[in-house]
């Protein structure tokens, strides 16, 4: 019966984005050969924000794109049809690059698995890393994130709602408890 809880405010999200940008640069020793690919919908603006923060730190452009995973999901038969989003690969090729996948929430890990399949259709990256704004646990697959904005303990039935200015008008992460409202 807990009402919505705002777990991250806009300034929290900003700080998380900047920290992830630093962590990516630290781990990869700079931005050489790095490409950020956001998973639609909300991974795309997040990837752009992280890339912009990295560009600010490094003083040069860090490429960010989008990778639609709709056709690679293993649960297509269980869900209603969803619209496809554009896939934008900066420079047209990811072969030999280090790709950082960016998504808003890491939950079952199935989206990430689909994204890795989609990546193999687009080329052969040197390495793939994963950055998420929120890790809410309950993985179905052996997948973990390399960069996490916030670990959020949830129950499986809770609903984590991420809103971003670019897609929804405001920046916030809310947790709607199961059975609430």
């Amino acid at each position: 019966m807990t009402p919505d809880q705002e777990f991250l405010t806009d300034s929290d999200i900003n700080r998380a984005v900047v920290r992830i940008a630093h962590e990516i640069l630290e781990r990869n020793r700079g931005a050489d050969n790095l490409v950020l690919l956001g998973i639609p919908r909300r991974g795309v603006p997040l990837a752009k924000r992280i890339a912009a923060a990295m560009s600010g730190i490094e003083g040069r452009e860090v490429p960010a794109g989008a990778l639609d995973v709709g056709m690679y999901r293993d649960d297509l038969r269980l869900r209603p049809t969803v619209a496809l989003h554009p896939t934008v690969i900066p420079g047209g090729d990811i072969t030999g690059k280090t790709v950082v996948l960016v998504d808003d929430v890491l939950f079952s890990g199935r989206t990430t698995r689909a994204a890795m399949d989609a990546l193999s259709g687009a080329g052969r990256p040197r390495a793939v890393q994963l950055a998420v704004l929120v890790d809410r646990g309950h993985r179905d697959l052996p997948i973990r994130a390399d960069y996490v904005g916030k670990n959020l303990p949830t129950s499986r039935d809770d609903d984590v709602q991420v809103t971003l200015t670019e897609t929804d008008g405001t920046d916030a992460v809310r947790l709607v408890r199961a059975g609430g409202n």
Partner: peptide, 13 residues
């Protein structure tokens, strides 16, 4: 969106 698949190295979903 699917028309783009023809431009990829692996033309299969």
């Amino acid at each position: 969106e699917l028309a783009q698949v023809a431009d990829r190295p692996v033309k299969k979903l």
